[in-house]
C-alpha cells in the first residue's frame, strides 16, 4: 500500500493503526509543508500559539518595567523613603525569613545571574542531548536513543530542582521568597514569578513527556524507523530552551537603574 493509500484508508481500519504509522520518508509530500507529518505541523502550530502567549507576558513585562521609576526596591531606596520593602508573609517566615521589627523585609533581593546562567547552560546541554537522541533514533540505535533521552530528562529534572532552590531555597541556602521577593508586592516580583513559573510548568510538562517517550523507546517503539514522535517531542523541548534563552536575557540580564 502506498503512503497516500495508507492515509486515505486510515479511517477504515483504525484497529490496525500501528500498520499506518508512517516513517518520515513515507509521509506524503505537500506543497506548503513538504513531508512534515500532521503531528509535526500540529506541534508547530501549538508552539506558535504558546510563543505568542510568552510574547504577551514579556511585552507586558517590558511595558511595566519601562514605565516604572523604581523597579527593584533596594535598601538604599527604602532608607530614602522612596519605596516600601515587602511585608514579611507567614509563608516567607515559615521558610526562615529574617524580618525587621516593622514586619517588613530589608529590601527586595536582586536575581542571581550566575546561578541562572548555570541553569541556562543546563537547558542548552539538554537541548543537544535531545537532538542527539533523535539522531540516534533515526539510525535505529535504541541504546543511544534511550541514553540521550534519559540524560535530557535528568537535565529537565535538575533545572526544576534549580528553580525550586531559586524560589524556596535548599539545604539551608535561602531562596528568593525567604529573601523578600513577594508576589503581589511589586511589578518586579509579580512578573518574575508569573513568567518563570509559566516557563517552569513547560519544563515540568516536558519532563513528563520525555519520561514517557524514554520508556517507549526502551520498549523498542521507534526501532523500526517511526521517529516522528521523537522529533515532535524534540520540537517541544527545544522550544522550552529557546524561550528560556529570551527569559534569561530579559528578566535576569537586563540591568536596572541601580546596577545588576
Amino acid at each position: 500500500m502506498s503512503a497516500h493509500e495508507a492515509v486515505e484508508h486510515h479511517g477504515d481500519d483504525d484497529h490496525h493503526h500501528h500498520e499506518h504509522r508512517l516513517r518520515p520518508e513515507e509521509w506524503p509530500s505537500e506543497p506548503m509543508v513538504g513531508v512534515a507529518s500532521a503531528g509535526k505541523v500540529g506541534m508547530w502550530w501549538f508552539l506558535l500559539s504558546d510563543a505568542l502567549m510568552f510574547a504577551g507576558f514579556l511585552l507586558a513585562y517590558g511595558i511595566l518595567r519601562g514605565g516604572s521609576e523604581i523597579w527593584t526596591c533596594t535598601q538604599e531606596l527604602v532608607e530614602a523613603g522612596k519605596c516600601l520593602a515587602p511585608v514579611c508573609s507567614d509563608f516567607a517566615m515559615s521558610l526562615g525569613a529574617q524580618c525587621q521589627e516593622n514586619g517588613r523585609f530589608l529590601e527586595e533581593p536582586a536575581l542571581g545571574i550566575n546561578f541562572t546562567a548555570g541553569l541556562t547552560f543546563l537547558l542548552i546541554c539538554s537541548s543537544v542531548t535531545m537532538v542527539l537522541a533523535l539522531s540516534y533514533c533515526k539510525e535505529g540505535d535504541r541504546k543511544n536513543t534511550v541514553k540521550y533521552l534519559a540524560i535530557t530528562t535528568a537535565g529537565g529534572i535538575l533545572f526544576l530542582c534549580g528553580q525550586w532552590y531559586e524560589y524556596f531555597g535548599l539545604f539551608g541556602f535561602p531562596g528568593l521568597i525567604e529573601s523578600g521577593l513577594a508576589f503581589g508586592h511589586s511589578s518586579y516580583a509579580t512578573t518574575f514569578f508569573l513568567i518563570t513559573s509559566f516557563h517552569g510548568m513547560h519544563v515540568f510538562s516536558g519532563v513528563v513527556y520525555l519520561a514517557i517517550t524514554t520508556w517507549q523507546a526502551s520498549k523498542g517503539r521507534f526501532d523500526d524507523g517511526y521517529t516522528s514522535e521523537v522529533e515532535i517531542l524534540g520540537l517541544f523541548w527545544h522550544f522550552v530552551d529557546l524561550i528560556w534563552i529570551l527569559v534569561f536575557t530579559f528578566i535576569y540580564l537586563v540591568p536596572n537603574e541601580h546596577g545588576v
Partner: peptide, 10 residues
C-alpha cells in the same frame, strides 16, 4: 535543533 533549516519555505 528544531530543524527549520530543513523545512520548506512555506
Amino acid at each position: 535543533y528544531m530543524h527549520l533549516n530543513d523545512e520548506t519555505a512555506g
